[in-house]
Each structure stands twice: as structure tokens, then as C-alpha cells.
Design a protein around this nucleic acid. Sequence first.
DNA 1: GAGTTTGAAACT
DNA 2: CAGTTTCAAACTC
Length: 794
Amino acid sequence: MDTPERNQIGTPKAKFEDSPVFNYINSLSPIKPVKSVHITQTFSSLSFASLPSVFTSPHVSAHKESRFLRRHSTSDPSKPESSLESGNKVSANEDAAQLYINSEELREDCVPGVSTGEDSVEPSSEHSKFVIELPRNLKYDCGSPDCRPTTRCGTEAHCELEVADLSAPLVPYVQKTSEEGSSNDEAHLQIICQTLQRKEGTGCDWESLISDAADLLIFDSPNGTEAFKGLMQNSLDPATRFCTSLAPQLTQNDVNDEQNMQVLDIVGSGRQLETEDPSSQYGEASQLERTEQMEDHLNNCMVSSQSEKEDNKVETPMQFNCKPAVLNLQRGLRRRCLDFEMAGARRKSLDNVSNSSSNMLSQSDEKITTNDKQLVPMKPGGESSRCILPGIGLHLNALAKTSKDYKIIKCESLAYGRQLSLPNSTADIHSPTGGQGPGHESFSSASSERDMDGTENGVQLAHDASQEPAFLANEEFNQNSPKKKRRRFEQAGETESCKRCNCKKSKCLKLYCECFAAGVYCIEPCSCQECFNKPIHEDTVLATRKQIESRNPLAFAPKVIRSSDSVPELGEESSKTPASARHKRGCNCKKSSCLKKYCECYQGGVGCSISCRCEGCKNAFGRKDGSFIGTEAELDEEEAEACEKSVAEKHQQKIEIQKNEEQRLDSALPTTPLRLSRQMVSLPFSSKNKPPRSSVFSIGGSSSGLYTSQKLGKPNILRPESKFERHSQTVPEDEMPEILQGDGSPSTGVKTASPNSKRVCPPNSDFGPSPGRRTGRKLILQSIPSFPSLTPQH
DNA sequence: GAGTTTGAAACT
DNA sequence: CAGTTTCAAACTC
């Protein structure tokens, strides 16, 4: 090993110098020994520390030192040249030195892998590997320091010689090397990056740089190209794989990589990788593109899972350099992947990741679980798990998924997500059938939407949390009995997200099943029998969904359409429905007077609309006749109706009481005369769980809504401050039309009734956070379109 | 927890 | 499209 390598190294060096890359680097420069970054030092040192443990071979230690020194020198001005000591090379050029070192490191890395026994033998092959890897690192890490052209150069000679040699055995090493090497390389890269950054000013343009370097390198070592490609892929694969697992969104390319990775893991032959990976055959440019994509994915993933970094052996000393967060993250991911693979701890990693609590992560987790385990999902963790797992293909679940926040956000978020998703991405909802693919996308999209909504969402979440919090927190998830849980959840408004069903005959493949209807898989809490609504039966579920959709494209669309944007929940969760919201199809209640949850409108927290065919409607959220305004007149009307229709007097009484209360509140509150008015009878909510919030709170939540002002006049309806309030208020004049458009629901009538209310909103000041109608509007629009989309997904 | 009520979903 | 049946949630006790 030693002799050949060094000799080779020497040559490479010469080549290297000649190589454009070298020149380029020199131009960049600055990399000179000392100048560079302090940061590097520390990190590098750290990284080194980690390395030793890994490497067993003596060579390694020596190399390490060299590296260490070298890095040191680079990083540390004070220690500069000492690094050279490594003795490996004295070359005046640091670059050369770096290269040399890198090459050695690579070898070392290889050795460790080889350590099993092949140390001496492998070198050549390894070098080739390294060479290949380097570019990939560059690419990959591009953000990250890892990328170092230099290393490549150093190895080139070897590559040429050895390229042909690439063999299966190498593969395993490659992975390790990639990990380790990356760490080592990182320092170098960092330095480079820093220098670059300094030059460029803002961020370093790694990609461009890398690409250039890669190209150059490639040219230099034509022979190595193949190997390089293979290696590239391999190296990339781990990261990719990880990402893929994490992020459902990954593109197919990524998927391919993932597959490749797996292959590598299993087979361990670099060649296979090459062959399998189509990309390998593509031009370098294509690979670069891929790598870029990968990076993006990684970045995404990484961001969410920063916490994970810690684990990795590699740990990234380098992270700080260049684009620290992202790059570092990527690195961490990469390593993680490797580590996981190596250890087979993938799952663990996943878990950890999930803990990190990012949606993405959670999704990824789901995905992984699904993939790996084959959809076991549904119940992994109980409630939380439920939400999470189910996600597999489905929608809502995915949205919800963060583990921790989960509780807080979870239900709400789910609901929230749901709404968003529903309207916007009906696909999400539908997606379930769509299977993982679509589902994931939908999820991502949904999540993204959430983010997009940003303030509102955030507000909403907070809001929701505030509202339901106690509820959720207390009761939520502990209950074992499904029924209880269900109720609680529902009450909380979480129903949709965390639905539980109790189906006995439908096999959870009909809309009778709430879970199925919501586009989520059944979970533990469900007490269903012969349930087919599980990941295992994904095909069946999808097929069924399709069938149902074929019959009714909107079957899986949210039943309640909310005008407000950010609105979270679907309709069922009554708590949040905005006044503007309306039930998609309307209810057909005959005996419940729309005062019980039998009524979907009521359940959804929305008033009845023209589309409703209900009899004796007394919907507290708004009557079909438009009484929703909640004015006194309404009361009268209600009473009259009650008499006429013989609605339960009790209900009226309740309503009246509520109204009275509302009036009080209203008077107290800022009164805006116009408020929308759909009153929402607070009773239901308040009684259940959601205590009415103060108007202020309500505001935040949904969007728009808020406004606020309610009509004093009618005060009757109290708005429950809670969600309802927001919603009801939210509807501004402008919105009304939109809403109507969107829903197409008759609600217009109602709204019209209280047109004035809208304007009041401006004063929302009360509500502070309310996102603003505008957003609400936007949301509405989006939401509207989305519905249609639902069908397509499948 | 069991039984009843209710209205949506599914079917004809 | 209307009528009927099936189903499971909501509700009551």
C-alpha cells in the first residue's frame, strides 16, 4: 500500500498541478495554508478525533495525524505548515498537499473498511473509489466542504490504474470511505469553501465550483469516469436513500438512487451500482444535476432533522463552514444514512428523526416504515403513531405527523392540514388511494402549504392549541377505549385528523367509515372489524377509493368548505368552522333540527345553507333560512319555527340561553354591528369541550375571520369565541362572494343577511392575529379548486 | 356498555 | 332522481 500509493501520489500531484482544477483552486486561492478558517480547525480536529476510533489500521493513525496537522495548518494560521509534517508531502502547494493527504486519507479510509484484512491489497481499487467519491462529495456536499476536487486529483493516477479493478468488494468500502472520507475531506472542503466564500462574498457557489471541478477531474481521469460514476452513485446513494426515507417528496431520481443504495448494501458491488444506476451512464452533467437535486432533498430533510446530526460518527466538524446549516445537515444525513445502513439501525435513525419533529421527518419516517416494514404503520405508536403512520398513503395522517408537537399541533394541525389540504390539495385527501406516491406528495404539499400559509397557520395552530389545548392535552391520547377517545378527539375538533371508527360491516372501505372518508388509515384506536383500511391493503383501499370517486368525485372532498383560508378543519370539527363555511352538500336532517351532530352541518360547525334539505332547521351556526345572523329576529324566527316545526323546545331554549350569553358577550365585546353573524351557538362547543374563547383568541385562528365584530344586534348568538367566532366573523363582504363561489353553497343567503358584518372586520384589532381576510380569500380560492383535484389523484 | 336514534351512504 | 336499505356515528340510558 504505502509504496505504491505514495509513488502514485507523486504523479498525481504533477497531474494535479497541471489540471485545470488545480489551477482553478489556486486562483481561488487563498486556500493557502494558514489563512483559512479557524473554524475549520476545531471542527477538523473534532472530526479527526472521531476518526481514530473507526480506523484500526496503523496507517490510518499516521495519516490521520497528517491530516490533522494539515487541516490544522490550513485552518490555523499559526500552525500552518507544520501540517506538512505529515511528511506525506512537502509540496509547496497546499493544494497538492491537500490532495496528497486526501489521497492518503482515502486510502486510510479504505483501509479501515478493508481493515478486515485487506488493507494492503485494496489500495488501488480504493483509490479509484476515492477518486470517484470525491466528485460526488463535491457535488453532494457541495454545500458542504466535502467536495474537494483536490482529493480526486491525487487519486487520479490510482484511478486510472485501478478503475478497471473496481469490483464488488470495493463497494462496501466505498460506503465507509464515503463516510469517513467525507469527514476528512470536509475539512479541506471547508477551507476551500471559506476561501471561496470570502472571495465571492455571499455564499459560496459550490455547485458551480464543484461542477467545474468535477468536470475537470473527470477529464483528467477518463478511466476513472466509470468508476467515478459508480462511486458517485454509491456515495450519493446513501444520502439519497436517507433522504428518500425521510422525504417522501423525493423525485424518482432519488428513488433510483435509493434503490441503488440498497443494492449496494446488499450486494456490495460497485459495478452493479453503476450498471443499475442509469444515471451513471448519463453524462456528468446529468449526474451533477442529480446531485443537486439530491442536495435539495437533503437540505430539506436535513433542515428538519438537525438534531440528528449529533449521532453521526462523522459528525461534521465541518459543518460550520460554508453553508453551515444546510451543508452540515446534509452531511449529517449522509453519514447517518451510512451509519444506519451499516448498523442496520435505519429505523433508529428514523425514530430519532421523527423525534426531531419535523413534518418532513415524520413523513419520512412513515415512508420508511412503510417501505421497510411494509406498511405496518398504522399503529405504531399509538395515537401519535396513528396519525403518523396512517399517513402512508394518505393524506391527513401525513400532515399531522410530528411526534411531539404532535399533540399540540397534531390534531389541530391535522385538522388544519386537512382543511388546507382539502381545498388546495384535494389530492392529499384523495391521495390516500393514490398510494404512497401521491400521498407523499400530497403530504409534502400540504405541509408546504402550511408553511406557506405561514403566519396564519402558525397563528392558527397557536390558536387552536389555545383553544383546545386543555382538551387535547388532558384527555387526548391516553384513553384506551376507542369510544371515549373518539369523543374526546372529536370534541377537540381533532376528529378528522385522529379519527377512529367502529365499523363492523363496511370493512372500513366505505364512506361510512370516518377514517376512510377522511382519507386516513385506521389505527389502533379504531375498534373496527375486518378492517381493510390499512396500509397493508393499500391496493384495496385505493381501488375502493377510486371506485367511490368515480361515483362521486367529491366524495372525499371536505364536507365543509370554509371560506377562510387557513381554516383548519374539515367540517366535522365543528369548533373551528367559520361562518363563511358551508357544508358541501348540505344536510337532510328531519328530526334533529340540525342541533345535533347527526347534522353534518352542525357537526362541521357551519350553518345550514340553501343546499340543505333539512326540516325545522335550528342550526345554531346558521339556519338554512338565513337566520344565521343570529339577530333577535332570528330568535323569533327560530321560535316560530320551533312552533311550526315542533322542533325540540329544549334546543331552542338552549339556543336562547346561548344567545343571551352571546349578547352579553357581544355587548362586552367590541360590538360591531355587523358581524357576520352566524352565530354559532356556543353551547355545543362550550359544552363539549371547547370553551369558548375570547374573541381575541378566535381571531388568531383562522384566518380571516375574524372580524370581528359581531353584530350586536343579534346578539343572540354568541359566538363562541372560539374558532367559531373567527370563522363567522371572518367572512368579509369580499369574501362572501368568493366563498359562495367556492362553495357554491347557498350560504350566500346567509351571508347576505349579514353583509355588514364583514366590514367590521377591519377592526380586527381585537383579534390581532387574524390572518387577514386576504389570506382568507386566497385560501378560499385555492380551496375551491382543490376539490376538483381530488378526483384526479387517484 | 348496551341499546336507540339519526341521517348519510349505498343500493335499487 | 326517488325510494329503500345499510351502516355507523351520535345519543340516551
